[in-house]
Design a protein around this nucleic acid. Sequence first.
DNA 1: TATGAATGAGTATTCATTCAT
DNA 2: AATGAATGAATACTCATTCAT
Lengths: 220, 220, 220, 220
Amino acid sequence: MDFSHSLLYQQPMSDQSVNARPSKQVRHDELIAAAFSLFIERGFAATRLEDVAHLAGVAKGTVVVHFPTKEALFTAVVLEHVTPTVQRAEALRDAPGSPRERIVGLLRFIHGSLQDPHVGGIPKLIVSEVGNFPELARGFHEQVCDRSRCAMTDLINQGIAAGEFRVVDAALAARLVLDSLIMHAIWRHSLGRYEPEAVDSHAFLETHLDIFLRGIAAEV
Amino acid sequence: MDFSHSLLYQQPMSDQSVNARPSKQVRHDELIAAAFSLFIERGFAATRLEDVAHLAGVAKGTVVVHFPTKEALFTAVVLEHVTPTVQRAEALRDAPGSPRERIVGLLRFIHGSLQDPHVGGIPKLIVSEVGNFPELARGFHEQVCDRSRCAMTDLINQGIAAGEFRVVDAALAARLVLDSLIMHAIWRHSLGRYEPEAVDSHAFLETHLDIFLRGIAAEV
Amino acid sequence: MDFSHSLLYQQPMSDQSVNARPSKQVRHDELIAAAFSLFIERGFAATRLEDVAHLAGVAKGTVVVHFPTKEALFTAVVLEHVTPTVQRAEALRDAPGSPRERIVGLLRFIHGSLQDPHVGGIPKLIVSEVGNFPELARGFHEQVCDRSRCAMTDLINQGIAAGEFRVVDAALAARLVLDSLIMHAIWRHSLGRYEPEAVDSHAFLETHLDIFLRGIAAEV
Amino acid sequence: MDFSHSLLYQQPMSDQSVNARPSKQVRHDELIAAAFSLFIERGFAATRLEDVAHLAGVAKGTVVVHFPTKEALFTAVVLEHVTPTVQRAEALRDAPGSPRERIVGLLRFIHGSLQDPHVGGIPKLIVSEVGNFPELARGFHEQVCDRSRCAMTDLINQGIAAGEFRVVDAALAARLVLDSLIMHAIWRHSLGRYEPEAVDSHAFLETHLDIFLRGIAAEV
DNA sequence: TATGAATGAGTATTCATTCAT
DNA sequence: AATGAATGAATACTCATTCAT
């Protein structure tokens, strides 16, 4: 499974004429968007292709024209939402600044990305459906999880080496600090819907950074 | 939705005769166990009642005798696996010891419980299926999430009052520290399967405790 | 199919002891009564044996002990409700009095019998289920329909011969006059339930007798 | 429940091409026809959707495309067969001629309609199944029973007012005269099958008219 | 004799996929 | 390319009947 190219943005479109039938690309994107929100909301099995079609404003048969099977649609949905984000995430590891500054930057970026409804629903989707899509799971794990964790582990190790942080298991620490963000995103798309008042995402991140960074800070 | 009593462990059975038909309670538990493992493995939709019956060693119709619908079976599975754990968790809040000691005790208990395959699969199941079971969701949120978070928030606030911890938003901190444990359990039942080497759960918890407690410790 | 003996009233019962288990005959009758009302209300297919058991105040298995199959129960229900009535009906044909008087007597008797809930539901039951019980149908037709119509036809012919009535097709006239009564009974157990105010059965019969007898009366 | 428009006869179709797939309307009518004959023959419960599909020459799933549930199919069957007849019946009340002539016309029309296998089976179906379809029952009662009886009651009252008929309870008389026709139709679709020789329907109607009209005729 | 748990054949319904228009 | 009618495999659920207690 190749996550390194996006199916989005492929074919720069004209689409000038007002009453023209929407181009294939536009239809494609509309279907992806509709499918994404339904997959997130109901899961793969409980999402009917007819509902996807309805939400996208087309007929049932049209979905099949664009995606040969339901599983192909699901795969496309995941790929298109994941790829752009991953690419931008890795760039941040190599930005200038102290390890601590770059950790803050990376976490802020990831947290910010997960606020975007087009990205924040992905972890819930992956966690829920991964059991029935082994290939997709493997790809996601290698290209997304591994790479984000590596980036974070690298930064922590750099901080330890620089004496900014005390000696901790950098891999576990990276996992811990990222898990909270991901769990937060998953929460918002599952049980969080039943919470009387929404969590303040900004305060959540700041508290997280505060506690974590103090927790790994070098002793005075 | 009443989560306050467990249907498990009710009626200590004799069941001496060798060829005797298992009592209704025994059948009930066998079905719950079979359904649990299949729901965890495949999710709600992909689990066929026939498979549940087969795994429990009974005929298809027997499942229906015990649980009128597939949803009722699902609800029963969740309730029976969750209720005892929550009750014991709350008891630990009121145990003797300093706030810090009780936090450690509570987190060790929760983490330990989540290692039990009979409990650790629940969070992933809830996250995945909760969208299609609003009633179950509400009950789970109130009886499980709220109560665990309250217990942890209370302990952090006690520690702040006692001067053991510095001033932080206790509710957010409680959420953060618990989320990591839950995310870890979810992970092990989803993408964790594709990880080349399993995470050392013991080291994970110790690192978590170490960083978190140092992160909220009062300034020297 | 033999309609000439009733399964009711067979075994004169003692049943003295207060707390004793009800005798087999009593159970039998309770089940027949429960089954009758449910068959009438819902039809054969939509009546579950479990409901019959529940209405009779026994467990599901008990029904099977008394009636080996659902069809046997149905047959028993029909036989027991039909047999006594038919026997009494035939006796009236040979009563003393003018043909006209005997016609009035017979119609009053039949109409009165059909007011009894234990009898009035039978025609609806027969009409509804006859298609799936050919043997029962044949027996009912021969023993009940044929015999009642013959009795009525005889009386009309006697009246024609005596010059009381004008010459009409006695068989058709008999059918006509009886059909109205039967239809009335069927009505009360089917669509009649949806009528805002119930029909006055007494007035119905009197109007029927009035119009019919004047309709076949000899010209002055 | 709206009985006031027929789904039949709506859209006169060309359907020229030989191998063309039949239009939705044609399929609809084929399914209604197939379902009707099976419902009449076996009743609602004993009719399998698969048999309906088979008789209509389509696959099982096609039935569901046209009628979401078995009950919807049943309702449609009743409505489409009944509505046109009632409408034409009411028109006859307001036709020219003496009350007596119009009564004869109306009864001939109703009797004739009930000879049509597409209509004559309905009363038996209604009587048998109405208990499990309260909504259909109410609609049928209001739109069919009430309206036919009103028409007949009106005519009898007109005859009484004109001095053609003697004073009788017109509502009961209307019920009586119609019941015989309906009972006759029910009979033919139930126990009538077990009669050695079929009743002569023409003679039946003439005898009925003869006796009834003489029965309510004004005294000389 | 009465019970009710267990059975499994039967059936309505769902829905991804196909294909003629 | 888009449509939506048709298909049929898959599956939850029903319920008469069996049988161990």
